[in-house]
Design a protein around this nucleic acid. Sequence first.
DNA 1: CTGAAAGCGCTAACAT
DNA 2: ATGTTAGCGCTTTCAG
Lengths: 338, 338
Amino acid sequence: MKPISPPGRATLKDIARTVGVDVSTVSKVLNDGGISVRPQTRQAIIDEASRVNYRPHALARNLRTQRTGALGILLPDLTNPIYAETVHGAMRQAERSGYVMLIAEVADERTSAAAYMRLVSERRIDGLIIAVSAETSEMIAAIENNPVPHVFVNRRSSIGRSVTVDDQASGRLAAQTLIEAGHRRLGFIGALPELDTSRRRRHGFVEVCQAAGLPAVVEIAGPVSRRGGYDALHRLLDEAQRPTGVFAFNMLVGIGALAAARVRGVRVPDDLSVVTLDGEDAIFTAPPLTAIITPLAEMGARAVVELEAMIQGREPQDVVINIPPKLVYRESVAPPPR
Amino acid sequence: MKPISPPGRATLKDIARTVGVDVSTVSKVLNDGGISVRPQTRQAIIDEASRVNYRPHALARNLRTQRTGALGILLPDLTNPIYAETVHGAMRQAERSGYVMLIAEVADERTSAAAYMRLVSERRIDGLIIAVSAETSEMIAAIENNPVPHVFVNRRSSIGRSVTVDDQASGRLAAQTLIEAGHRRLGFIGALPELDTSRRRRHGFVEVCQAAGLPAVVEIAGPVSRRGGYDALHRLLDEAQRPTGVFAFNMLVGIGALAAARVRGVRVPDDLSVVTLDGEDAIFTAPPLTAIITPLAEMGARAVVELEAMIQGREPQDVVINIPPKLVYRESVAPPPR
DNA sequence: CTGAAAGCGCTAACAT
DNA sequence: ATGTTAGCGCTTTCAG
């Protein structure tokens, strides 16, 4: 029975006029519930508001309160499922908390500083999640010149709070898994060393290999993509001491590596074992990839929670989500050949 | 040599005060370039603005101009690479045009209407891209009660403009491809029939099959996901008249189908040919999938262009991106067995 | 060429 | 219990 509301735009003033009170009274009722307003007046206001289907004008309110109700997230590339998953988790939490989410893809460090300025210094957001590698001087300068509550996700940073998992433990776990399967020559397909997650995973991986007295780990670095993994495995297979088991930086890289093995006629897992990180996809690859779970969505959500705390002035802290890395055995790991 | 700006917040008033002019003058200079302002004054203003690193306060400006400089996009799930790709294209174009992008994931029709209201009736955006299936009554009501420039992407709609490709032609192309390879028993793995893209692809596919005098096409519908494709192919393989060639609704479904074939011991393409739609991923599957290109990013970008036109009051029109569907042959299609 | 004034829609202290 | 006042930072007539 709700009559069609006048398309769009009822303001406080409209309500105030038809009810016959002041806009400030309407504002009170509609915000803090109108404690200390005569029930009768209050009801009239509420009725009229719902009759005209009133919605506050976010801009006006925000201008007044100096809050936007929006959070931003800066990331390199949404088509990378790693980031899509992270955003997904962040958005879920943001919605719960009543924030809308503004996303900016930033191709490189230059644009990332620019995007930062755009969102922050135009004051479009209350807080920012940063999923690009942060430690470029431009980015640091941008942040310091124009501070805003911010948290890094899946990145450590010298200049801010961050939500990360124990990547080093993941690296150790990957190594242990391969070693326990019987492998003695291991390889690591990492990302370019700018990525701190890659450094930490590598560190844990190498650590365990050394402790086990294994020969030097073969390392290859490349872009984090299917193509990067594809190219990297090709190079790894060209090594004199070709490894029998490899740890791929993440799922994308792992999928690429699988494709490379296939075209080289290298059978997984018979000829080569592969451990990778994360990824729903990993179950539908051929063969399904043994993988270490990375709670990307959870990290995104957690970043939002931390951000809220910072926005409300609570003292934030470094956050490491301490889910111990968990490995899911699938078909891509087996004992080495012969 | 740029001195570090006072952290954050220089306003027009600040600039006006130190230069010794009125804020309205500053506004003029900083906006329309300050035609009809003495060059000397203008220069002083520009200098001071850059000295303090002035940025307009988006909220204040927007409140005044009744424009937000933001576009919204409504979609079901960012972890679905189809949507991620679309958003990716949309964001690229939005950035070029100076818009920021607000994203809302909507799980179902209920929340999608709610999210619509949130973005639109609070006036957070100037226009909206809709990538959820639109034809639910709640959504239609929301749009009609609270109109805003909007365009559907990869969806036809009775109530708005839309950017789509010729899905029917894609369906035809898929059928032709399989028929030319020699297949006589074809299958279609579609989405639930609410999805108009699925209906159109199916239509084109069946049309060609009938014209070729082929027996009835086996059809299976399921959720659009890897899992959905996995389950669907299992059911297809259980059919009495098991098809030798299938057309999968999209890449996700195709990947799932490939996995199902693998566990059933059905070799692709020796025992079963698969044609799918779209997808960068398709090149790294085992075997690489023959696929029909869908310009998702381009569609996203195009939607933004149309939206801009609508926002500026130009007469919009139904848009069908008329790139003729193009098929990329990879390894997943071969002649039928025997 | 520049300034004064008004107001976008809302909130919040302060009066009454 | 309600209204008055005073902006938030900006743009935009309209006067001077």
